[in-house]
C-alpha cells in the first residue's frame, strides 16, 4: 500500500492541487476535470493497441533481427526504416516513447531512435495530408522540406551531444523498468 502511494505521489499532489483549484474557480476546475476525462477516453483508444503490439514485437522479433535492421551498423537502411516506421505511426507523440523503449531493449541505435521520434512527431503521413488540405500546399511542403533534413540533423546532434556513457545509462533505464 505504501509502495503504491509512493509511486502515485506526484499524481496525488497534482490531483489535490486541481481539487483546490476547483474550490476557488468552479469554471476552470470543472473544465479541467471534464477535459481530463476526455483525454482519458482518447488514450483508452490509442494506448492499449500500442502496448499490445509492443508486447508482440517483444516476444516474436529477436534482438538480432532488430540489431541487423536498425542497430549500430545498420547504416542508411536503419535511418530509412526509423523514418518510415515513425511516419507510418498513429497517435500523439507520447505513444512513441514506449515504442522507443522497446527499441532500446532490442538494440536499436540511439540516433535511429531519435529519427524515429522526430518522424513520429512531425512527418506522420495522414497528418501531412490533412495539413495540405487545411493550410495549403506551399505551407505544408515547405514544412516537410525543412522537417526531413531537420529531423536527421537533430538526431545527429543529439547522438553527438549525449555521450556514450549517458546513452548507455538511458538504455539501462529501459531494461530495468520493463523486465
Amino acid at each position: 500500500m505504501r509502495q503504491i502511494i509512493q509511486r502515485y505521489r506526484a499524481f496525488l499532489v497534482v490531483l489535490i492541487v486541481m481539487g483546490i483549484l476547483f474550490l476557488f474557480n468552479r469554471d476552470l476546475g470543472g473544465a479541467t476535470f471534464q477535459k481530463a476525462g476526455h483525454t482519458i477516453w482518447e488514450m483508452l483508444f490509442i494506448i492499449p493497441p500500442i502496448f499490445v503490439l509492443l508486447g508482440l514485437l517483444d516476444v516474436w522479433v529477436p534482438r538480432e533481427t532488430m540489431v541487423r535492421f536498425m542497430g549500430e551498423r545498420s547504416g542508411v537502411k536503419g535511418v530509412l526504416l526509423a523514418f518510415l516506421l515513425g511516419s507510418a505511426a498513429a497517435g500523439p507523440l507520447y505513444g512513441a516513447f514506449p515504442v522507443a523503449s522497446v527499441f532500446m531493449r532490442k538494440g536499436v541505435k540511439f540516433s535511429n531512435i531519435m529519427v524515429f521520434l522526430g518522424a513520429w512527431s512531425t512527418t506522420k503521413i495522414p497528418l501531412i495530408l490533412f495539413e495540405l488540405q487545411s493550410l495549403g500546399v506551399r505551407f505544408a511542403l515547405t514544412r516537410l522540406a525543412m522537417n526531413i533534413p531537420g529531423i536527421l540533423i537533430i538526431a545527429w546532434i543529439l547522438s553527438r551531444i549525449v555521450s556514450e556513457d549517458a546513452q548507455r545509462a538511458v538504455y539501462e533505464r529501459n531494461t530495468e523498468t520493463q523486465s
Binding site: R7, A10, K35, A36, P48, Y94, S101, T177, Q178
Partner: peptide, 20 residues
Amino acid sequence: AIENILPEFLVVILLVGFLL
C-alpha cells in the same frame, strides 16, 4: 508496461486537462 508508466500518464492527463 502500461502499469509501469501509469503514474506518469495520470499526471500528464491532469496537466493536459488543465491546459485544454
